[in-house]
Design a protein around this nucleic acid. Structure first.
Lengths: 157, 157
DNA sequence: TATATGGTATACAGACTTGTCAATTATTGT
DNA sequence: ACAATAATTGACAAGTCTGTATACCATATA
């Protein structure tokens, strides 16, 4: 009854839980990134270190918007739409970091990194302690270095 | 009644559907790879071309084991366990291709490619026509080339 | 202390899920 | 054509899910 008083419907409750947990994650990550490093180019390189910390933490229970979009696969569903929006916003957040690091195809790199991220979360949801994030991190470093080199080359000549 | 006669329980039905669709996918992919190319090093490079063809096909409805593992998150659940096994087997399939292509850390590359793959499928399930697979493909090529160069360097000197 | 506000507990309603049972109807092999 | 086997249908049962209604209890404020 108390739940229904506050959220009215189950869908409303789920939407609020999704919003809250995404805010918490974003705030946590943003805090880590802004307090621990200085140069924009360092931030994007540190991104997967913090993601690893988050995924391997014992309290990790998966990514809200990934679980929700799987449980509500219909694209018309409000929960699915919020999940999709959160996924897009997180990708844009990475894109902003890449842009500040002066990477040429910032959005392209952001999409690739988000694929690694979502893949690693998926792997971890499928098997706790999979270690997939370690390899996602290596791949991310390679992709980031590739994108940075491209940026350096095209601006130097 | 006919369904219950054949599969006894809903869980049994789901397990059979998962097995069948995975077999179909593996057979389709294996056929593509064995008929269209020759050298092992070419096969692994072609992998994401075929995956793109599969994901962008109008009949694509998502990846069974990804959806199932999300819907049955408990690791004790037989459906979850089958999903996990299928994910692992597909990764090993990629690893076999990488091994035949004489890539040094074949399993590591396979894991990275499977992260890109699962991330792209996830993205496509979240938003049909997302185009994520195009960027996954680019990232895959970069990772594969990186792994091949490493193999070349370490065997040449 | 009285009153209002919000939390808790129990019962219930209607729809849906996962099957089961039994009667009827199709299909197949001989 | 006949018998066996399999598929279809509709009724039902037990349990779950989502939500409502109501009565009761705790807390805060005047």
């Amino acid at each position: 009854m108390t739940l229904y008083k506050h959220f009215h419907t189950k869908e409303g409750l789920i939407l609020e839980v999704l919003k809250k947990s995404q805010q918490d994650f974003q705030n946590w990550l943003d805090n880590k990134l802004s307090s621990n490093s200085k140069a924009p180019a360092d931030k994007i390189k540190q991104l997967f270190d913090f993601i690893e910390e988050w995924i391997t933490s014992p309290s990790f229970l998966g990514m809200g918007f990934i679980k929700a979009s799987a449980e509500f696969p219909n694209e018309e569903n409000p929960i699915h739409q919020l999940s999709s929006k959160q996924s897009r916003e997180f990708r844009q957040y990475i894109g902003k970091l890449a842009g500040e690091a002066n990477i040429k195809d910032a959005d392209g790199l952001a999409l690739q990194l988000s694929l690694l991220f979502e893949g690693a979360v998926q792997a971890e949801q499928m098997k706790r302690g999979s270690g997939a994030i370690k390899y996602a991190k290596k791949a991310a470093k390679l992709l980031i270095d590739g994108a940075i080199n491209k940026q350096v080359l095209t601006t130097d000549f």
